[in-house]
Simulated assay, not measured.
Amino acid sequence: MIGQFISLEGGEGVGKSTQTARLATALEARGVHVLVTREPGGSEGAEAIRGLLMQGEVTRWSPHTEALLFAAARADHVEKRIRPALEAGQWVLCDRYIDSTRAYQGGQGIDDAAILALHGFGSKGLLPDRTLLLTLPQGAGEERALVRDQGVADRFGARGRDFHAQVAAAFDRIAAAEGDRVRAVDASGAPEAVTDRLMEALADLLP
């Protein structure tokens, strides 16, 4: 049996990490064997690249270099962890995946076709069975992230409001164009209410 591949996406502070953990618990209660992972990272090689991507000055890497580094990290992650888990029949829950590269680096002018071409080469084009896009009103996620990070943000969280607005707009475009795969989910309110909405968005895939 091939497992299901689920990614959680969204801008800063929308609750992806919290909801990935909560969703894993809810799925396991339904008897689903779940692997929880993240990007960038998830494998030894990809975690090493994560350190390069997330630390340092905002200007450390150009958008082109970031796209290449993300593609390299993802290729190792897919080969070492995601595909083996799916082939073993597990559900994979991934905190960010290819759509984050499309939104963050694409929002800085990198052509979407180029990002997908890198993904096709490095990760053989593997896409999630379902992508859950967590959404909040503009500015709300950044405010949550400020509290979460206590003023010490990574290279992406530290960027200005205009950048994050571009990221949100890019996610919206992806969701509008790929509605069969991507489901937008309201991330406001109590965590348990958000988890319920995520489970509803997976209802057709659940055993």
Rank of each mutant, 00 (worst) to 15 (best):
H164D: 01
V147M: 07
G151F: 07
A169I: 01
F171G: 02
V147L: 13
A145M: 09
H164N: 01
A158H: 09
R159Q: 11
D162Q: 15
A145P: 10
F156Y: 04
E143I: 05
A140R: 12
H164Y: 06
F163A: 01
R161G: 00
A169K: 09
G141V: 05
A145K: 08
H164S: 10
G160D: 15
A168N: 14
F156M: 06
F163Q: 03
R155I: 06
G151T: 00
A140W: 12
A170G: 02
A153W: 07
A153N: 07
G151S: 08
A168T: 11
R161M: 03
D154C: 01
R144F: 10
V167Q: 11
A158I: 07
A170I: 00
A153P: 15
E142H: 05
A145I: 03
D162T: 13
F156W: 05
A170Q: 10
R148F: 04
A168L: 07
F156S: 02
D162N: 13
A168R: 13
A170T: 04
A145G: 07
G160N: 15
A153L: 14
D162S: 12
G157Y: 02
D162H: 06
V147P: 02
R155H: 03
L146G: 11
R144I: 14
H164I: 00
A140H: 15
Q150F: 13
Q166I: 01
G151Y: 10
D149C: 04
R148L: 05
R161V: 04
A165H: 05
F171L: 03
D154A: 00
Q150L: 15
G157I: 04
Q150C: 12
G160I: 10
F163V: 01
Q166S: 15
V147R: 10
E142D: 00
V167D: 03
R144T: 09
F171P: 10
D162W: 06
F171I: 05
A153H: 15
A158F: 11
A145C: 09
A158S: 10
F163K: 06
D154N: 07
H164M: 00
F156L: 11
G141Q: 08
E143P: 00
D154R: 00
A153V: 07
F163M: 07
A168I: 09
F171M: 07
D172Y: 02
D149L: 03
R144H: 13
R144P: 06
A170F: 02
E143Q: 09
A158P: 14
L146F: 15
A169E: 12
A140C: 10
R155S: 11
G157S: 08
E142Q: 13
R161I: 05
G160Q: 14
D149Y: 12
V147I: 15
Q166L: 12
G157M: 03
A168F: 07
V147Q: 08
R148E: 08
V147N: 02
D154I: 01
R161L: 02
V147F: 08
A169N: 09
Q150G: 14
R148V: 05
R144E: 06
Q150K: 14
A140Y: 12
V147W: 06
R161S: 08
R144K: 14
A170D: 02
Q166T: 02
R148G: 01
Q166C: 12
D172A: 15
L146H: 15
V167W: 00
R159K: 05
Q150W: 09
R144V: 11
E143A: 14
A165F: 00
R161N: 01
D154K: 02
A169D: 12
F163T: 01
V167E: 03
E143N: 01
A170R: 02
A165I: 00
F171Y: 15
F171E: 09
Q150Y: 06
